[in-house]
Each structure stands twice: as C-alpha cells, then as structure tokens.
Amino acid sequence: MDKYIIRRNNKGIVWFTINRPEKRNAIDYEVMDGLSETISEVKNNQSDKVFVITGIGEKAFCSGGDLAAFQNLMTKEDAYKMLSKMGEILYSLATLEKPTVALLNGLAIGGGCELATACDYRLAFRESRFGFVQGRLGITTGWGGATLLLERVSTDKALQMLLTGNIYTAVEGKDLGYINHILSKDLPNNECEEYISKQIIHNTKVIEAYKKVVNRKWVATQLKQRMFREIEECSVLWASDEHHQAVSSFMNKNN
C-alpha cells in the first residue's frame, strides 16, 4: 500500500494524503521524500495553484514522526540528520509561492502540528484535536515548528500551546487563532475547496507576488536560521537519557 496518495483536480488543487492509518498517519522517511518531491512539483508546475495536505480516514491528520522508524537514532548527530531533513521540507512548504492548506481530518499531535503550522491555512473537522506534545517525550519541536508557530499566532498563545502540551479542540484552536476555519464532516473536501475559492481569488501570478512579499520578510528575519537553531537544540535533547527512556516506555506500552 502506498504511504501517500497524490491527486490533482481541474481547479489546480493538489491533494497530498498521508496514507498510513495503522500508524495514525505518522511520518517516516518515505513520506518525507514524497512530501519533498511533491512540493517541488507544485512549485514548478504552472497548472498547480493550491497545495492541500491531509491524512487518510477520519481519525488522524498526522501523529508526527514514526517512532518505530526513528527509535534507533541515539546520538545528536543521528537525530540532527533526520530532524534537519524534515526541517528543510517544512521550510520549503512554508515558503512555497503558492497557497498551502492543512486539512485536519482528525488528531494532529507533535510533528503533525509542525506540519500543519508550516501551511498558510489550517482547516479542521469540528471533532479534530491538536497539540504540541513533544515535551512529554523529553524533547522540543524538532522540525522548526515552534519558530513557525510564532509566525502564525501571538507569542503568548504560542507559548501556551508549547509549554502546556495541551490537546485542544478545533473550536479552541480557532479561538487561539491557529485554526482558520472549521468544516463539517459531511463533504469536507468540497467545503475545503469552497473555502479556498473564496479566500484565494486572484490569479496565480498575483498570489505568487504576495507570497514573495511574505518570504522576503522571513528572509529578513532569518526564519530558516531560526528554525535550524531550534532543530539543533532539539537534537541535543533527543540524545538525552530522558528522551530515550520516554520513547522506550511509549514503544513498550504500544506493543
């Protein structure tokens, strides 16, 4: 079974669906490569206008990194190689000169929140929940997600989400300014496309020009450098005994 599904429609919307329901749509190296390749394709394909990321089913958008795939990364150097790989992908997603949408069809936790945060818009089922829970494993956001979060919501709201590690509902996420729109579960893809058609009305050239304005701000404020300092700090925590013990306990609990 393919770990991700790519679909294009006649409106120029590209759908990237993580297809790992047995892993709550967790990200492994294959999904990373799929995201990287698809972002590059969307960037270079003039007929692609909007990029939407979601997960298969109604239970999980993305549960973050697949711990089974990454549990053997013991050292700071090993961790940094994986974390920086995904950091590069999220930076390319955040700076893509076409609108990006995360459709939260279910639970988004840990790295799943980082993936959603890299997108321009976050739409969610009313039943969806999300949370930056990395601290429970003795680490911080490892893919640059905290830096990106500070670009999306106010500092106090970002700290609240990061420091508490709380799981929030979609309604609470809208109040925090994190979720842009709440969808019904009946026809979410249609409703998502309707939202896109109302929010993104200009032609592709105009949209790209506006996104370049945003990107220039992020270059000036060293977004990428800030993301990678965050990734460096996480890689140090990743190599700690506390993190390895937390991962071991989690894996034993789920086996």
Score class of each variant (00 low, 15 high):
Leu148Pro: 01
Ala116Pro: 08
Leu83Cys: 11
Ile89Glu: 03
Trp143Pro: 00
Ala102Ser: 15
Asp175Ser: 13
Ala118Met: 08
Leu83Ser: 04
Lys81Phe: 05
Leu90Arg: 01
Gly111Ser: 14
Glu194Cys: 06
Arg152Gln: 12
Arg122Ser: 11
Ala79Gln: 06
Leu183Trp: 03
Asn189Glu: 15
Leu103Ser: 00
Asp175Ile: 09
Glu97Gln: 15
Leu163His: 07
Thr100Asn: 08
Met82Pro: 00
Leu149Lys: 05
Ala79Ser: 15
Leu176Val: 01
Ala116Tyr: 09
Asn190Glu: 12
Glu193Pro: 03
Arg136Tyr: 11
Ala94Ser: 12
Asn105Gln: 07
Met161Glu: 05
Asp186Ile: 12
Glu151Met: 03
Thr117Cys: 12
Ala124Gln: 10
Asn180Ser: 12
Glu151Tyr: 00
Met86Ile: 07
Met161Gln: 12
Val153Gly: 05
Leu115Pro: 05
Lys157Pro: 00
Lys85Asp: 10
Ile167Lys: 09
Lys157Asn: 14
Ala170Gln: 05
Asn189Val: 14
Val153Ser: 05
Gly173Ser: 11
Met86Thr: 10
Gly138Val: 11
Arg129Pro: 00
Asp120Gly: 06
Ser84Phe: 02
Glu172Gln: 15
Cys119Lys: 10
Gly142Tyr: 06
Leu103Arg: 06
Gly112Tyr: 08
Phe132Leu: 11
Glu77Phe: 04
Asp186His: 07
Gly135Asp: 09
Arg126Met: 04
Leu176Phe: 14
Glu193Val: 13
Leu83Val: 02
Gln160Tyr: 14
Gly144His: 09
Tyr80Ala: 03
Ile139Leu: 14
Glu193Trp: 03
Thr169Gln: 03
Gly131Arg: 06
Thr140Lys: 13
Leu90Ser: 02
Ile139Val: 15
Arg129Tyr: 08
Thr95Ile: 02
Ile182Pro: 03
Gly173Tyr: 08
Leu115Glu: 06
Pro99Met: 13
Thr140Cys: 09
Trp143Met: 13
Thr141Met: 14
Val101Leu: 05
Ile89Ser: 01
Gly173Asp: 10
Ser92Glu: 14
Tyr168Val: 05
Lys157His: 09
Leu148Phe: 02
Phe125Pro: 00
Ser154Glu: 15
Gly138Asp: 09
Asp78Asn: 14
Ser128Lys: 11
Leu83Ala: 10
Ala79Tyr: 04
Asn166Pro: 00
Ile182Ser: 02
Lys174Pro: 00
Leu90Ile: 06
Ala170Phe: 06
Glu97Asn: 14
Leu104Glu: 10
Arg136Asp: 08
Ile109Trp: 00
Lys85Ser: 13
Asp78Arg: 04
Asp120Cys: 09
